[in-house]
Write a protein that binds this DNA or RNA. Sequence first.
DNA 1: AGCGCATCCATTTTT
DNA 2: TGGATGCGCT
Length: 762
Amino acid sequence: MSAAHPILNTPQAEAVAHVNGPLLVFAGAGSGKTRVITYRIVNLVAEHRVAPYRILAVTFTNKAAGEMRDRLSRILGPGGEAIAKDLWVGTFHATCAKLLRRFGGSIGLPRDFVIYDTQDQRAVVSRVLKELDFDEKRYPPRTVLGRIHKEKQEGRGPDEMEAGDYVDDVVVKIFRKYEEHLHRAGAVDFEDLIGRTVKLVEDPDSEDAKTIRRRFQYVLVDEFQDTNRMQYRLVKALASETQNLCVVGDDDQSIYRWRGADIRNIRNFRRDFANAKVVKLEQNYRSTKRIVSAALGVISPSREREPKELWTDNEDGIPIDVVAARDEHDEAAFVTRSISDARAEGTSLREMAVFYRIHAQSRVLEEALRVANVPYQIVGGMKFYERAEVKDALSYLRVLVNPQSDVDFLRIVNVPARGIGQTSIERLTAFASSRGLQVHDALAKLDEATDVPTAAKKKLAGLRDLLEDFCAFERQHAASDVLDRILEKTGYRDALKNEDSAEADARLENLAELIGSIRDYEAEMQAAGEKGSLSGFLERVSLQSDTDQMEEEGRVTLMTVHSAKGLEFERVILTGMEEEMFPYRGMDPGGEEELEEERRLAYVAITRARKHLALTHTSMRQIFGTTRWGRPSRFIGDLPAESIVQKATRSASQRPQQSYVERARETRDYAPMPSWFQKKQPTVQRAAGERYVDKEFFADTSAGSEGGDSESGELRRGARVLHSRFGEGEVRRIEASSEPAAVVFFPGWGEKKVLARFLRLA
DNA sequence: AGCGCATCCATTTTT
DNA sequence: TGGATGCGCT
């Protein structure tokens, strides 16, 4: 192999050459992580003659899986496609689904189980709330579902939850019913895919478990810092026979704690596998020295990190712009101007990106870009498979495959409108539960449903006949034709055509696209010599919610920092770099852990840029209908002085009443530094690497000391304190957690637990 | 069934 | 500020 990869540096080669036993790779941003994974697989197959189907590589997104597969077949060259096809490369969820389709029977899972997405899950919770007669206001389905998932992510069911501390009985009840519903519907949620597979594979006595564990000789996990508890358990179990578990990740890029990622998985890997080989990839091939040093400036204050230092051999590059703007409009004008300029100088719009912390920031940016005629695309937003018409169509198809699925049946029972009103539906479901039937099955026993009015029965019978027809048709025809027939015979298409609006046309197009994607799937399967089934298509859809059209030509990309992870751009503008915005602070003050994650998020943002990076901050910003006055983010204060250059837009110091266009024109040339700005520049000569210390201009960079004058010692019971959001309140008691905090009574808000650093004495 | 008005609420996202 | 949602009316 050695001749094939002279392109690997020493640690990369080390990771590739390591064959047997656990391996932990810390892969810094831009350090060639994917390269290592792919070459490692190539090495196993080509050099060590490992059968491709005995190698499992797990990723988090379909996109990552797809890229890995592509790269593998490219490296393997002609003839390698067959090998790439045999490898198990997929997301956690897809891999589990595959195993459960094959072996799920032994743990009581029906062959044709459906996968409920978030909307479906929420519908189940809503229904459970109604059945149990709980108030949706008091128990918002969203929140309850969040709690349920948290339990499931830790491997707990309702029973285990009930046995735990601090339990809300109501949530346990809802949880239990939720599980029952899924079970009866022959459905699983995303957590189940992982959890059930863990159960399946961990079973010491089951033959299936043994088969699976022996099957995978080598297991690789990408983005290991994003794994949650159950995912870790899963890969451990899968690799338990051979211990050939290779995990790749970067603790500095762990930004998904809030959705269950457990950073301890990567931090404690060496404890769990005492003989693990550890490799650190620290050379960055992506960014200029200045950008790398900026990234280091931001991440270094982080408390618990694996010791490592990113470095690069690349050129110094140009300084990073730190731009002061007056408000978000001024900021947007700068962004627009700067993009137009770069474009005029020949940088493709595809190579530029604008990041923000939260989606709400995108609107103003969009407006400015639109006015200036700069093409842009926004990542995130309504996904194709989440659109109402697409979900309707899919529900019809899923009912054919699995009639037990109540969520799907209830979705389509009156779509398009066929005169089955809410009351009829309620009576029907009531009848179904009284007989212990799923709603669809209740259709067959309609005669016995005394509560359902005759008129409704007639219409329900009509639906039943339709479904039967589709079912018969499905046995003889391709899935794409089935959907076509459904849209035709139910009158779905006609209903949209009659609407004759632009919106309806868009929906029709989406449906046509859906049929097209089924055809694509069928063609693809045929090319692979397999038969594309309806259920096969549905599975693919459930596990792949986004149509990855990220590659759109000639557009600037606008996105949150979260969605930027894993990407890179020539030019990046990071907006909204103010305290409260980034690090973000929402309703609850947030603790040290949250702040650490924000820091890592900033690190991720900075390391996306190859050559040009600008950070913008405003002194004033309208967000959620109120005006906030902000100070530059502490993360700006963490940037090394010699890597940045400070600028201010003209209106940052003046207050012109101007239009967007005029402002955009004005900001073409940077105004001289406004006087207040210059006054606050540190006057001392800074040594290389020294940080800005101007506390008045920059936010304090030492975490936890914001607000300054509120040591916990001064806080005592009865003290009057001020909070930026809740106003004046009275301290009820002091609470020591990871840092000093107090429970304060705020008139009009009630008791709130607040960290001491967010309080000032009144 | 479908519309209009009021009200409430506010990260980050994948599968 | 705006979107999502819910309610009541027609």
